[in-house]
């Protein structure tokens, strides 16, 4: 297991994430893991007591987790949103835009590749879950 890459200042949650089903059944967990087939909106009533939501990517080509992440941020979730599993460095920039602020990839990233991936894009064409200003907004500022 590679180390976790975090873009937050708070302390990481120190207990393991539970499945969505067990989270909805018990009230004391503050960390949950979403699988690709889970409905992220099921967590929306409980966001206040969540400090960590892991979004699992069993295969990097399954993009459902990008929607899950954005939906959670759109619902106002401010805790840690961590992409785990088959996460590739070339996906980091889009994942950051969808609201992920932590990464726990199966295979360790090369530090230089991470820097390059996150610094590459001079602009963005869409409003998403990050704080970047879309190009269309800059054009009409």
């Amino acid at each position: 297991m590679a180390e976790t890459l975090r873009y937050r200042d708070d302390e990481p949650v120190d207990h393991p994430a539970v499945t969505v089903d067990s989270f909805l059944d018990q009230s004391n967990a503050s960390a949950v893991r979403i699988e690709p087939g889970d409905d992220a909106r099921a967590l929306v009533p409980h966001l206040e007591r969540l400090a960590l939501i892991e979004v699992n990517f069993p295969a990097f080509g399954d993009g459902r987790g990008y929607s899950s992440a954005r939906i959670l941020r759109e619902a106002g979730y401010e805790g840690e949103l961590r992409a785990v599993g088959d996460v590739l460095v070339d996906q980091l920039a889009y994942m950051r835009r969808c609201g992920f602020d932590a990464f726990e990839p199966d295979k360790q990233f090369d530090r230089d590749d991470v820097t390059a991936a996150l610094e590459r894009w001079p602009g963005v064409y869409q409003q998403a879950a990050d704080d970047r200003t879309p190009i269309w907004s800059k054009r009409h500022a």
Partner: peptide
Amino acid sequence: RQWSSFHPEFSYLP
């Protein structure tokens, strides 16, 4: 075209 270019949520569609 611009909206769909480098779309962060829709680049790993089914």
